[in-house]
Design a protein around this nucleic acid. Structure first.
Length: 213
DNA sequence: TGGTCTAGAGATGCTGTTCT
DNA sequence: AGAACAGCATCTCTAGACCA
């Protein structure tokens, strides 16, 4: 009976060892797969960063070209912190022809390009200038038609004016309308011919005053 | 305490109308 | 004819209620 008991114990011990070895092998396989995923993820991160950098450089080059002057580029730490914040809070979607909505970065690019070409909107047919705006965005990697650019511009201005006219105060860092502060400063500086014109129009409608005055 | 649902407000796109 | 504007539908987000 003792011999039988010892054999039985021996057998169970062998089974235990085999099971432990099997579990260890599975753990190593899982670990390898995880490492592989991490490497792949890191590689994608690098690619996205490179893409973002080249897009930013294209934007800077385009704006420098238009304005004929060099920009002061913010320190990388400042930029990365902003990008990080935006990415975490809003999950910014890169420009995608299938995506109807305009990502924050794309709206800001539109505002920048449209503002730079503002002087061209003062004279003659505007259709071709919207083509230029669409081209400018295209160079930055945002594919939109001239019509879409024009529509978006009208919509953001419409919403901006509606919000301002309603007299609502907007909390700092409100979840959307990233372009609000930019439009704000543009209207204040009087850089926006469209906005300025509309302001006069609204005023005159209310007070029966000659726009020329 | 965390997950799900819902109402309401904000934000946006599309389309028709008016204006220049 | 093209630009500007207005209205409406739809999408998105968030706070609060409710439940397991």
């Amino acid at each position: 009976m003792v011999k039988k008991l010892m054999d039985r114990q021996e057998q169970m011990h062998k089974q235990l060892i085999e099971m432990l070895e099997k579990k260890e092998e599975e753990r190593i396989i899982r670990e390898e797969a995880w490492k592989q995923q991490e490497v792949e993820r890191a590689r994608r991160d690098v690619e996205l960063r490179a893409e973002e950098t080249s897009r930013n450089l294209a934007l800077i080059a385009f704006l420098e070209n238009l304005l004929g002057e060099d920009f002061q580029i913010p320190k990388s730490s400042e930029v990365t912190s902003v990008v990080k914040d935006e990415g975490e809070v809003h999950g910014d979607i890169r420009s995608d022809p299938c995506n109807r909505r305009w990502p924050k970065s794309e709206v800001q690019a539109l505002v920048s390009v449209r503002t730079c070409l503002d002087h061209k909107f003062l004279k003659g047919a505007k259709g071709s200038v919207w083509e230029e705006v669409a081209d400018g965005l295209g160079k930055m990697g945002y594919i939109r038609t001239a019509k879409k650019c024009k529509e978006k511009w009208e919509n953001i201005n419409k919403y901006y004016k509606r919000t301002i006219d309603s007299g609502k105060t907007r909390p700092k860092n409100y979840r959307s309308c990233p372009y609000f502060h930019e439009l704000d400063s543009l209207y204040k500086k009087g850089l926006l011919n469209q906005g300025a014109g509309n302001c006069v129009k609204i005023e005159t409608e209310n007070k029966n005053v000659d726009p020329e005055e």
